[in-house]
Amino acid sequence: MQQLHYELHYFKNPNYPIIFHIDTLYKQSSHIVAHWHANIELLYVVSGEAVVEIDGQPVRAKRGEIVIINSNSIHSVRSETDEVVYFCLIMDSTFCRSLNFDTVNCRFHHLTNDLEMRNIFQIIANESQQAKPFYQKAVRALCNTMLILLYRNQLIEHTLVRTNTSDRMAIIKQAIEYIHHHFNRDISLDEISQEIGISKFYFCRIFKDVTGITPNNYIFQVRCNHAHQLLSERDLSVAECSDICGFNSTAYFTKCFKSVFGFPPSHIHRHKDQPIYGTQRDAHSGQRSVFISTNGQAEPTPL
């Protein structure tokens, strides 16, 4: 069975819960492997042609077209031409909800060449490239407009129907959603398996089959990512942060944190003014971070 990955987006600045960057893929040497995440993602093809497989269905997009990847949709990206260049915009689901847009339970058409949305992409690219004062506020406002256009012109349905737990992927998605809502307290595998209506043994087996890691390993990685964000933005002690994020002891928290990031949590206090550690997209390998994608400023891009 092909191993899939859940991508957890980490936002260094909680007031800027947006990821925007430009990607280049090459037909012979790179692609974005199958993965999914809770946040909506939009890809605007600048040049070339891309094939985005979404929940098993190929979506072909050429220059000037926008691919909309719905929340929790399994997707991969490859180049259909020798090279494809595209803008990638990811908006945090909590940020969207704060603007009264529920992007988790809504479904949108996968492909559009909406002129207004294309213009918004270009302005976001300019703002991100130039990084003038208040550019992040400008991008937030532009994302609000982008959401309005999505709901006006691309909305298919809004549904709160409970996921069908007979499907393995649906089970894992439901479990991950539950973990993200309850990771900051003592949460057991019995509780999770009971919530999704299957045995603990079966749950642990299919979680490892699909994601490549155990549920407990996933829980502590989610906790560590949240801890990294808290330590970066708030004046908390390591012990306080450990307690907030659901760890039973500071020593165990430090051990887990170091295994995820390669350095102890105390390191953040000493290096708050330096660039954050994190993995970035490799244009040639096409591999994307399994758990962390940062919202750093995009590299300069000729438009």
Rank of each mutant, 00 (worst) to 15 (best):
N184S: 14
T163Y: 12
F263V: 15
Y178M: 07
L89D: 02
V77F: 04
R223C: 09
N113M: 08
Q130R: 07
Y252M: 13
P58V: 03
R118C: 14
V290L: 08
S199G: 15
I120D: 09
H37P: 01
H109F: 14
N295W: 03
N248L: 13
P133H: 06
D273W: 07
R270P: 03
D102A: 00
I172R: 04
R288A: 04
T165I: 15
E233W: 10
N295V: 06
N184G: 06
R118P: 07
L4E: 06
L111M: 14
D114I: 06
R270S: 11
G246H: 02
A50N: 02
T159G: 11
M117V: 05
F20Q: 02
E83A: 11
I176R: 00
H158P: 08
I292E: 06
G296I: 00
C204I: 00
L230A: 09
T94N: 15
H21Y: 11
G197E: 04
Y218Q: 04
Y86D: 06
Y44G: 00
N153Y: 15
G212C: 08
E49K: 14
Q274G: 08
S249A: 14
I74M: 03
K12P: 05
V210L: 07
F11M: 00
S193T: 07
E116V: 13
N216M: 11
D273V: 04
L147K: 01
D82K: 12
L142A: 07
Y202L: 13
D243P: 01
R78I: 02
S289A: 15
I148K: 04
F101S: 03
Q2E: 07
N70A: 06
I179L: 09
Q3T: 11
A251V: 13
I192L: 02
I276E: 02
I40M: 00
H31Q: 12
F134H: 11
T24K: 08
Y252H: 15
A50Y: 04
D23G: 08
I66T: 02
H180D: 12
D235W: 09
L236E: 07
F253H: 04
T250W: 05
N105V: 00
V46F: 01
N15A: 10
H269Q: 14
N39I: 00
F257I: 00
Y16D: 06
F220L: 14
Q194T: 10
S29K: 14
I198W: 03
P275N: 01
L115E: 15
S76P: 01
P215F: 01
D114E: 15
R168K: 15
R281G: 08
A227W: 09
V104H: 01
E7T: 10
D186R: 14
V260D: 07
T159A: 12
D23S: 10
I156C: 10
I244W: 07
P17Y: 01
I187N: 02
P17Q: 01
I90C: 07
F134K: 15
V104S: 04
N113T: 07
H284K: 10
V85K: 10
R63K: 15
S76K: 04
S166C: 10
N153T: 15
